[in-house]
């Protein structure tokens, strides 16, 4: 049962990701990216990480991608022609070689772990008893409290910085 869902979500994610790159219209690219994000959230759910899946959708699909679409529409970038991108043969060759190299590096560097991965303390059985949100909260606020607070500080600084940069001077 799980297998079918895994294959379906994985396939949709991969196809949508490729389609996103191949689209010429930014709007369609954005829509394919959203589809890929959804399929990825499905994979998280299969792994027993419902909290991550929900947060993933809320933050990326619900907020960031809406802003992307917003900007695309405000700048009116959407109406380029929708014929598939013309690719030069040189580009295809260079791209294939680079992708192959990357894959080989991954295979050598990570080995069979790339499929299986090491098993952590919080496998689906443990999560079922502790509860997803509780587990994440506990780890964040006990083991990783200082990195967590530092991250939020960096985010706050970035936000203030963005506001200062974006704010035009009013005479």
């Amino acid at each position: 049962m799980e297998w079918i869902f895994f294959l379906a979500f994985g396939l949709v994610a991969a196809v949508a990701a490729v389609a996103m790159v191949l689209q010429r219209s930014p709007i369609y690219s954005a829509l394919y990216l959203i589809l890929a994000l959804f399929a990825q959230a499905g994979l998280y759910i299969l792994l027993g990480a419902e909290l991550i899946a929900a947060v993933h959708i809320i933050v990326y699909a619900g907020a960031i991608m809406v802003l992307f679409l917003f900007v695309i529409m405000l700048l009116d970038l959407g109406r380029t022609d929708r014929s598939p991108a013309r690719v030069k043969p040189v580009g295809v060759i260079v791209g294939t070689v680079l992708a192959g190299l990357l894959l080989a590096e991954l295979a050598v560097g990570v080995g069979p772990q790339i499929v299986l991965g090491p098993r952590g303390a919080y496998d689906p059985e443990v999560l079922r008893t502790v509860g997803n949100t509780r587990a994440v909260g506990r780890i964040l606020f006990r083991e990783y409290l200082i990195p967590f607070e530092l991250t939020s500080l960096i985010l706050l600084t970035a936000m203030v910085g963005a506001m200062v940069l974006a704010k035009r001077k009013v005479e």
Partner: peptide, 13 residues
């Protein structure tokens, strides 16, 4: 078990 987050995830779409 994350029902409320599910609601907000869906509503934001």
């Amino acid at each position: 078990n994350i029902g409320l987050l599910y609601v907000f995830a869906v509503a934001s779409l």
